[in-house]
Structure formats: C-alpha cells, structure tokens
Design a binder for these strands. Sequence first.
DNA 1: GGTTCTAGAACC
DNA 2: GGTTCTAGAACC
Lengths: 187, 187
Amino acid sequence: MEGQRLPGALNPSHFPAKLWQLVNSPRFGSVRWDARGEGLLIDQRLFERELLGAAPAGQGAALTAAFFKTRNFPSFIRQLNLYGFRKLGPGPLQGLAGGDGGGSAGPLLHFHSPHFRRDRPDLLVHLKRLTSANKAKLAAGLQVPSRPPQRSQRLLGAALHGDPALLPSRLGEAARPGELGWAPAWW
Amino acid sequence: MEGQRLPGALNPSHFPAKLWQLVNSPRFGSVRWDARGEGLLIDQRLFERELLGAAPAGQGAALTAAFFKTRNFPSFIRQLNLYGFRKLGPGPLQGLAGGDGGGSAGPLLHFHSPHFRRDRPDLLVHLKRLTSANKAKLAAGLQVPSRPPQRSQRLLGAALHGDPALLPSRLGEAARPGELGWAPAWW
DNA sequence: GGTTCTAGAACC
DNA sequence: GGTTCTAGAACC
C-alpha cells in the first residue's frame, strides 16, 4: 500500500488529490495504473457508470456518488489536459498499457503526466492547473503557489488515511462537531 | 415534405448536407427539429446508439451504418461548432424546444444556426466551415467558395430525392456502371 | 478551482 | 473536409 497515501500537503478537494485517490481506490475500476505505474488507463464507459451516474441506457439517471461535480466525461478530460496530462495514442508506449484489464466494458484511454506516477506521490505537488497566468509564471521560472488544505480538510484526510501524525493528539485540538462527522459519498 | 429536399448545389458528402438529411430522415430519432423548426434537438444517448455504433453497455460494439466516420460524439459537436452552430442553454429559448420528444432516452442538446432552418433549405449554402482562413475571408467581405458536388454525387442526390430535373435525360448522359450502383449505408 | 462551450491546430 | 487532441475563455 506504500505510495497510495495522499500527501498531506495536497488539498483533497482539488483535482490532483481526487485523481490520486481514484486511481488507488479498490472501489473503482474505471481508472487504474498502466503496467508501469506511469500512466492512467481510463475506461470511459465504466467511468460514466461508476462516477458520473450514467444509467445503462433505458433506465433513468441513477443517483450516484458525487466524486466529481460534472455529469459529462469531456469535463474530466478537460481537467486532465488542464493539469498537463497528455493522451498516449496507439503505439509503442500504448503497448505498455497492459491488457484489457479484466472485464473492461469499452476501449481504454491512456493518459500520462510526468508528475503522476504510482510510486512517486511526492511529485503530485507539481501538478498545477495550467491557466495562461500559471503557464506564464512557470515559463518565467517562478513558483505557482498552491492553496494548502484547510484545517478541516487536513483532519479529514488524516482520518481517511489513518495517518496518526496528522491527527490532533490532544482533546483540545480535536475536531469540532461536524468537522469529521462526514465523509465524501465516494469513499 | 417540402423543404426536406437537399439542394442540388450541396455536396452530399459534406457535413451540412449530411446533417440536413439526418434531421429530416424518419429513420433516425436522435436528431430532429425543435418546435419552431429553427434549431436542432439532439439526444446524445440515442445518437451514439443510432449513428456511432455504441453498444448498450455490456455488449460488444455493434457494427453500424457509417453516417459519420467517427465513433466519438465530441467530434460531432466539433463539427457543429466548426460550422457555426451554437448551443442554446436552458432558458426562454430552450423552452421552445418542444417536449421530451416521445421516448427520448436522455437529455436533449439544443443547437442553433441562422443558416439551418426547416423551411429554408436555400440557406444551407451559407453554412461554411469556419477555419481561421475562412473566417478572415468572411470578415473581409469576401466569398468563401464551396467545392460543388462531383457528377456522381449530383446523380446520387437526384436519384435519392427523386428530382427528375437533375437526372440525365438521355441515355448518353446516364450514369456509368457503379456510379449509381450504391447508396450510403444509412439511407 | 471546477465546469462548460467553443476554437486552434495537427493529423488523416 | 473530417477527426482528434488540447486549450482559451466565460461562467459558476
């Protein structure tokens, strides 16, 4: 399980953290690592059913866990591109994807970012939202700050990942009512 | 049935002609006119099944008529935008869409172009592919030429639409073998 | 920062 | 000209 812990410095409500949790979660099969742990394999059909609440055609829209706010798969792709992921086409690199993944319903999309690797959660902090402003800063060699998670978010993350180092040690620092009394629907 | 005939000047292999035939075809329910005949109502779920060969989830990909070359719905949207269609959001205009369309499987997308109206096939010639070059020409008040359909395509269109004026009147002008010996799979 | 709609560009 | 991938911009 090493390498699957979400670094505490990441804001769990932002896309990189959510994606990290998603790919490492046994709950979901639509997003997983490729054979080398250096890219993402995404089963669009399964993704829409698991995460976007798409009904199996004929049934009404099922209410589903709100991992993402959207109901549209293209918005997820937009997020990937916005954070610098690139699609890997069919070819030698794609060949490393690693099989059909066992019962996948549809074709797999293969995406890659140099800052998103299974064994390198420390690189996640380099995933930046590539707005034009941020790109200009990065091009100029400047730093792009990340808003750190709020106290309640850090507590939640620590609780979810069982990281005692991040949990309050004294009662006086304990979570206020409501602060830890919930969990995301997708967990 | 007036107004559903494809103008002979249009190249039937290009997007505007295909879209016109699609929305006026009784074969397909995924694309149809809104209540005013001034916009398109598109049922993405049905569109993917009818025209892109999407399997009903679980089954393998079904082989389907090749109305479009793509298997991806976003490519169809890209075409709409490329030809100047804009999406109408929920609101007063959207309210004119006209019901759920009778058994539509999913939510409807509403798109509009001033050159695409049920009762005005004569406007279709103004639908231009909005490349940056074409947009510059249009902005300069210049004309953007359309490649006219080839002889075989004119003949096919005339035959499909039963337009005797466009069909050869003498045997010497008749179609050569193979020229009319086929029809699109989707017809 | 996330989501949505549209457009640029490259490839076919 | 059609298709695909990525990005800009506006809105939330």
